[in-house]
Simulated scan of single mutants.
Amino acid sequence: MRTLAIAALQTTPVPYDTEATWTRFADQVRATRELFPHVRLVTVPELLLAAEGPLLGPAPAGWTEQVATTVPGPVTDRLCALAVETGLWLVPGSVFERAEDGRVFNTALAISPEGEIAARYRKVFPWQPYEKATPGTGFTVFDIPDVGRVGLAICYDGSFPETVRQLAWLGAEVVIQPTLTTTRDREMELVCARANAWTNQVYV
């Protein structure tokens, strides 16, 4: 039997403080490693490391531009080091990624215990008009040796049946879908996640 123990940490950032948010995240990952040694993969909510604030709260002007990072870059360097330290696979929510041409994407990452970027997925369905990130153009899977194939999705992607269907066609057996929702539509997102899991015979 193949097993994959996943810790989905229901955590929050320190609003608009990326350094304090990183410290909280890293401490929680280390605590998970200590408390639950059987866990192999840790994931957290969408845009956690971007230290996004409340939906209707005041935000610093141009915050997305301020925190957008290259991939690879300083944020992924830290993530890779943490993965090596803990021996865990990390799917650290998503980050605002600045591409070479200056466009900004909402990007989910998968970091291996060897400290490598195993996958990068740019959110295909940004929640418009609120989310200003550029849409991605393709779906992404990665392999965990001796376990199976994992697909990546982000939040609103799950509202479109084609997302998980395509990941299943690409061989995914598990879909990790970091999500940032604090509003009443969370109930419907759970319905979609369950439907996507059932109709495609994958774990979501």
Rank of each mutant, 00 (worst) to 15 (best):
W198N: 08
F139P: 00
H38R: 07
P58Q: 03
T11R: 02
P178Q: 01
F142T: 12
D27H: 11
R120S: 15
V204H: 06
Q166S: 07
P92H: 13
I176K: 00
T182G: 07
A51G: 07
V42F: 10
P74Q: 09
E131G: 00
P92Y: 15
R186T: 13
T18Q: 06
W127H: 08
G158R: 14
V202A: 04
P58T: 12
W198T: 15
T183S: 06
V104Q: 02
E189M: 14
A20R: 13
G102E: 02
E173L: 02
L79K: 06
P129T: 05
S112K: 07
P135I: 14
F96K: 09
A118W: 08
R2F: 06
V84E: 15
F96T: 04
E173W: 04
T69F: 10
S112Q: 09
A118N: 09
T140G: 10
V44L: 04
L109D: 08
A172S: 03
G151S: 05
I144Q: 04
P135R: 12
T3E: 14
L55K: 02
T43V: 01
G136N: 06
V175R: 01
T134K: 00
E131I: 10
Q128M: 12
L90P: 13
N200C: 14
R165C: 02
Q10S: 07
A81R: 15
P58Y: 03
V42K: 09
V67E: 09
T107N: 01
K132L: 13
D101W: 00
P54G: 07
F25T: 05
L4N: 03
A153Q: 06
A168S: 13
P178L: 02
Q66G: 01
I154M: 00
E85Q: 13
R165E: 14
W22T: 08
L48D: 00
M1K: 05
I144V: 15
V84I: 15
V175P: 03
T69V: 14
